[in-house]
Write a protein that binds this DNA or RNA. Structure first.
Lengths: 121, 121
DNA sequence: GCAATAACTTACCAAAAAGTAAGCCCGGCA
DNA sequence: TGCCGGGCTTACTTTTTGGTAAGTTATTGC
């Protein structure tokens, strides 16, 4: 058992998953891995089905864990830009593996997915 | 949006996660990736904190998705052996990445984790 | 002046995931 | 004979997660 910040983890895998667990985080990171300076609604519009509440929540956690960063470039009106950090980028082999594996699985089940389809809508 | 077996997925990553999502699955697979012919209680005893109900559930789903297989080698008394399948093994780069990332994170936070510690208890 | 858009916040509710604890069948062993 | 271990099942409760929808501040565009 590993103890860190008042939480317990069974193993290192568990530690990693605590950052990127949750349905949307990997998708958000994949998106920011490709696009820079994304606004809130640009991200939202690329994740069909996500609610704004969820997006806010996940973005906050990703920011807290320093996988992404938020720049407020205008206060009135309030405008922001999200970017992936180097730490977040270091997870990209993971996104790629998960994606490749999924694509391969789909292919084996007769579904052809266009690999470089970066926008989900 | 991808439709498969009456379910919808946002992207291939989502598809992959549907097999290995859930707190325990990756841990079970990591374990069976190292050890062969494991009995139910051997697996249980290596996942501190898991309930038998959870373990049964996850093992069933992993078996259904053909990532692991179960051999019943004695009916009376009832004795079984779990093994990872080739499909399950093809995910091992993932387990390794998640583990390495976690170990590295821990190191950066002053915790030294023995890399080849395969048993969690 | 009014609607639309950006970037949220808030409150409430439903569904899914997970935990708790007891029980069951069977054979081995003292 | 009684208890222990293996491999579960079952019923019930709690926790976590996620969804819905409305409201907020402020600007731009018609």
């Amino acid at each position: 058992m590993i103890k860190l910040n008042n939480k317990t983890y069974t193993c290192p895998v568990d530690v990693t998953l605590s950052f990127i667990g949750g349905k949307w985080k990997i998708l958000i990171l994949s998106h920011l891995n490709i696009f820079n300076d994304r606004g809130f609604s640009e991200i939202r519009d690329n994740l069909p089905g996500i609610s704004e509440k969820m997006l806010v929540q996940q973005l906050k956690e990703l920011e807290r864990d320093q996988l992404i960063e938020k720049k407020v470039f205008s206060l009135k009106p309030y405008r922001v830009q999200y970017n992936i950090t180097p730490t977040g980028k270091s997870l990209s082999p993971l996104f790629e593996f998960l994606s490749e594996y999924g694509i391969n699985y789909l292919k084996e089940h007769g579904i052809d997915y266009i690999k470089d389809q970066q926008l989900y809508k």
